[in-house]
Computed example of a mutant assay.
Amino acid sequence: MGTLPKALLWQRTDTDGTDLALLDDRRGLHARGVATATHPVPYVCRYELVTDETWATAHLDVTVEGAGWLRALRLERAAGRWRATTAEQGDLDRVLANAGHARAGLPGTEEPDLLHGAIDVDLAGAPLPNTLPIRRMGMLGAPAGTAHRLTMAWVLVPSLEVLASEQTYRVVDEGTIRFELDGFGADLAVDKEGYVLRYPGLAERKA
């Protein structure tokens, strides 16, 4: 396993937790990350994200683990089609129920065709994947008002259920990208490379 030359660290603002991503973005993106959170139950999330040179997702590997349970997902994109491979140990639903939360969806997707047209992934709670459409669509330096409506392969955490998600990215100004999803909107402050500095209500960059 080779080393990665850059490190980005976010502090979660919606719950106690952090997200550390190590990455190489010289030819597309190769990133490995470790995130922790306390909601809805305490967990650690380890992920590896790889794109091609155009920043289109090639694969995402995610493992989420908590006390007495573990879920894993490999989400691959090839020739415009997605494939999800999953594994599960323990009983996340029982842990969630004991904490007063609803049952989790099953990891992966039973209908990968719903992801047709998706090129990017979005990992819930992680600011890093927001950079994928920003870089892939050339939004850095684009005129204010430039907008793209995209289908994303959205991975929920901690369940690792994969959903098709319609999201809009819109240029507000040089350092701000407006993100919208199902009536929710947030102005993402980004650096000159398109990485999130501040995601209101979710996370802030510390390094």
Rank of each mutant, 00 (worst) to 15 (best):
A124L: 08
G125E: 06
G141E: 00
M137L: 14
G138W: 10
G80I: 02
T109G: 06
Q89Y: 03
R94H: 11
L96I: 10
D122Y: 04
M139S: 01
L132N: 12
R81C: 09
D113G: 04
L140H: 04
A84Y: 07
P107N: 09
G105D: 14
E88C: 10
A84K: 11
E110G: 05
A99Y: 00
A97S: 12
T131F: 02
D91E: 05
D120W: 08
A99N: 02
I134S: 06
L140D: 04
A118L: 08
T85A: 12
V95F: 05
G138T: 02
Q89V: 05
E88P: 08
I119E: 15
A126R: 01
D93E: 06
L132H: 12
T86R: 05
D91C: 09
L92E: 07
G145P: 02
L96H: 08
G125T: 07
A142N: 01
L92H: 12
L114Q: 13
L140R: 01
L140W: 08
V95I: 14
T85Y: 04
L140Q: 05
L96Q: 07
T131C: 11
A118S: 13
P127D: 00
W82M: 02
T86Q: 06
E88R: 13
L92M: 09
P133M: 01
L132Q: 11
R81K: 12
G117M: 12
I134Y: 07
T146E: 04
N98F: 01
T86S: 05
T109W: 08
R81A: 15
D93M: 08
G141Y: 00
P112S: 08
I119K: 04
G117T: 06
H101C: 08
D113Q: 13
G90I: 10
W82G: 03
P112C: 02
E110S: 13
P112Q: 04
L140K: 00
I134M: 06
Q89T: 12
A79H: 15
E88Y: 04
I119A: 13
E110R: 13
V95K: 03
P133L: 02
A104P: 14
L106E: 15
E88S: 11
G117N: 11
L128P: 10
D122S: 12
L123P: 13
P133Q: 09
T131N: 02
